[in-house]
Design a protein around this nucleic acid. Structure first.
Lengths: 254, 254
DNA sequence: TGCTATGTATAGCATAGGTTAAACCCACGT
DNA sequence: ACGTGGGTTTAACCTATGCTATACATAGCA
């Protein structure tokens, strides 16, 4: 049990790390965050975690595996809206808008840390620094959503796919994963749904990128041997991820 | 001067109204909000209010006219990411991420109410209800960004343009405008940039929609004579705008 | 009255990406 | 050892949308 506790605490470290990408948190804040009554659950591929219209009472953090967020057209066309990597809070917006407007689906067997919204609300009220960090994480997510609109609206298939792969590898690396050896966790169908393309066109385009040595394939897995070159293909500029220590122009608040 | 003050206070009413679309605010909260040291400015069409990379110190509310948010590809392709209508806060995310990741441009001569971020921060600290309302407004915006990704990624030109027009008319109506007589404040070029299409294809498609009586044109202005029919064309489901009184599943926080 | 600017309209041709359908591959379960 | 299912690959054909270029309309302005 002590072991269980400590390994669970460890698995929240990626979350703390994610918050610290954009915000500074004191040790006591981190402690309080970790000591919330988290519940850890595992879900297998394709499980639907949240459906459009659900009224949620929990907030979830992705600890391991992958989850994506999607919406569906009236005609049944699916669009993936973002892909979460370990450490990401995946539905903290439900703290303020508990009625889900997107679906959340497990893209690859995952484990999640869950808290009741009520407990989280209480924590945020007691720890303004955490509230601000959560806020900032949500706003960075919004910046990522906007980049996806740009990606889908204004880049051709090759740059579009390259951009998606760049983003994921950068975000994985920011969470401490070895991107050179971490395969991209997406099937071609999922890439299609994330880029607004067709699975067959994704296949064609991946073949091109592969011939150009911009991606390599180990079996079905896509790897990125040369991120720099791929960035050039994608026209990728990581600023929208707000990863570098950002400047502050605000004095401490009275 | 008293007159000036009172008309300025009046012009903030649309902002209060916007916040109240999603949140409940007590009168004293509203008072405090209105009494902030707002500065009112006018800007004419095509003025760039914020550039990518700017470090902002102000938050702005759109009082009159139209503003859009955009990003540009490395190749110089522009994508409009959202269109703001009167009453919308247009850059409140800079409270927490003051480094601008998008450009903001005046789409139609406008007037703006501006406050220093410092003053606003102080207000939010003193009035948690306002802080929550702002938060919620930002999260609704994020939901809109996601819908745009879906729109651009998964709808054909006709439904795409129709969807854009529906969204704007619904948001205008929510702010109290008479959508039947308010022309859509977009040139065909802007529609193209907002939908990821080409100006000439927008023109073609508008012609089709016009022949179908789904839009009408008074000179260069696009009007929506029959919003219901247009919604069917667009597959428009307004839930993502979170306009209806949303359900709450949270008890009052200790 | 005409000039310029900004936006709209149309035409003709080009192509990226969609569609359909069929094979293939391989990991897994029995 | 053999099917089964999820994912990948390829081919042939099709179309929605892009591209380039030119003409038109209107409003503001000298």
């Amino acid at each position: 049990m002590a072991v269980g506790k400590s390994s669970e605490a460890h698995s929240l470290k990626t979350f703390v790390n994610r918050l610290r990408l954009h915000s500074t948190l004191a040790e006591r804040d981190v402690q309080a965050l970790i000591e919330l009554p988290w519940k850890f659950i595992s879900r297998s591929q394709n499980t639907q975690l949240v459906r459009v219209g659900d009224l949620t009472g929990q907030c979830m953090v992705l600890v391991e595996g992958f989850v994506h967020r999607f919406r569906i057209t009236e005609e049944g066309e699916r669009q993936i809206l973002t892909i979460y990597v370990p450490g990401d809070p995946i539905n903290f917006e439900h703290l303020y808008l508990p009625l889900a407007d997107d679906g959340l689906q497990v893209a690859k067997d995952c484990t999640l840390a869950c808290v009741a919204q009520r407990d989280l609300h209480a924590l945020l009220a007691a720890h303004p620094a955490i509230a601000e960090a959560v806020m900032r994480a949500l706003l960075v997510d919004a910046s990522i959503f906007r980049e996806w609109t740009l990606n889908v609206g204004r880049r051709d298939a090759r740059a579009r796919i390259a951009h998606l792969l760049c983003e994921i590898s950068v975000r994985l690396r920011a969470q401490g994963f070895d991107f050179q050896n971490t395969p991209i966790p997406l099937t071609q169908d999922q890439i299609a749904d994330a880029t607004g393309l067709t699975p067959v066109h994704v296949n064609r385009t991946l073949k091109v990128l592969s011939a150009e040595r911009h991606v390599s394939r180990r079996g079905a897995l896509v790897m990125l041997p040369d991120p720099e070159a791929l960035r050039a293909v994608a026209g990728f500029d990581a600023r929208y991820l707000h990863l570098s220590p950002w400047p502050r122009n605000d004095e401490p608040i009275a």
